[in-house]
Design a protein around this nucleic acid. Structure first.
Lengths: 192, 192
DNA sequence: CACATTAGTGAACACTTGTACACACGGATA
DNA sequence: TATCCGTGTGTACAAGTGTTCACTAATGTG
């Protein structure tokens, strides 16, 4: 699995990886592959599971670090970006998988995103920041937030990991996106 | 090119297509490929160019059909969805290419999206619907709109083309996303 | 008409690919 | 101590891969 991620990190697309290629990168003979996975789709699914762990760690850190509400968005975006940098290959895999070849992987990633969105909704509810929204409207808002962040991810992964200027631009833009969405949410009742 | 799109439409990922595979689908001998393209990346780039045409046709239709402003969002989303259905393979290719293997294709698609967003900004400006926003804020809003719609695209392409119920759900959700964003934009000044 | 250009053909090349099979080693269990 | 069991190895095979080259048939231009 690490070998596959390494190749993805080098710019390859997961869908174009072959069994021999992955085992070669892992420094192991091709037949060993079958000791662990039935095929590449299977490997992809196990990667999705690990992706879940990465996301949960990220949420935990965000909850621990975001103390005062007024900086909530900025802090969260910063944490997200630093995690995306630290696990670049993982997030690359995630971005690829969303429109990938395996329906199962696609569904898995989508489901991780839904989970993430619902956790976000819980947190916001708990912080009593969104009392005027119905549950349904809050879910929608969080869904949109997660999608926007996920899309920013593809921006982020498109620039080189040490291009601080561009990364800062992406951070600012993502922050403003979320601010815009929350302004919308704050005034939603009047238009809903 | 049609052959490549056909394969993508059948669920294959563009990055995993080979020259022989594409020519086979095209009913032509492998060597003929080189009469038209230098390699698969080249083919991808030419597909991006054609994608531009598809998008432009879509914008033209939207401009022609969206007459009264109060239904602007709903109408536009509907037109987008019907175009996405009519050119499923093209949009599938676009969704894949955003996180694809070829940096050039990636950049091409991104640039088409930027163009789309800037045209949208022009239209909104012309309709005098957003007089209170600075150019910069309007650009940001349109960027977010285009991204949200693009993400909905991956939802849409994930369900079968004749699952009317699911498609209707996606249409409604996308519409509400955009409404939320525009509510945010309408009140942006107070928070910006 | 002669000619150049374009698109397609078929054979050939040196590799790479997925997968099967029998086998070998090391650590845990009984 | 003997026996599994998980992991890795080496060999093998049929099929598929990208790319080359020289050849041919159709097209439109002088």
């Amino acid at each position: 699995m690490t070998a596959a991620l390494t190749l993805v990190g080098k710019g390859r697309h997961f869908a174009s990886l072959g069994i021999r290629e992955v085992t070669r990168q892992a420094g192991v003979v091709p037949t060993s592959f079958y000791r662990h996975f039935r095929n590449m789709d299977d490997l992809g699914l196990q990667l999705v599971d690990e992706l879940g762990l990465v996301l949960r760690r990220m949420m935990r850190e965000a909850r621990a670090n975001v103390l005062q509400a007024d900086k909530l968005i900025e802090e969260s975006v910063a944490i997200f970006i630093s995690h995306a940098q630290a696990n670049r290959s993982f997030f690359l895999f995630m971005a690829q998988g969303l429109a990938g070849e395996s329906r199962a992987v696609q569904e898995g990633i989508r489901s991780e995103m839904r989970f993430f969105a619902s956790e976000l909704a819980n947190d916001l509810r708990r912080l009593r920041l969104v009392d005027h929204l119905t549950d349904q409207d809050l879910d929608m808002t969080c869904d949109l937030v997660v999608r926007s962040v996920a899309f920013s991810l593809t921006d982020l992964l498109g620039v080189s990991a040490d291009d601080d200027y561009q990364i800062e631009q992406i951070r600012k833009r993502t922050t403003r996106f979320l601010q815009l969405i929350f302004v919308g949410a704050a005034h939603w009742q009047s238009a809903g």
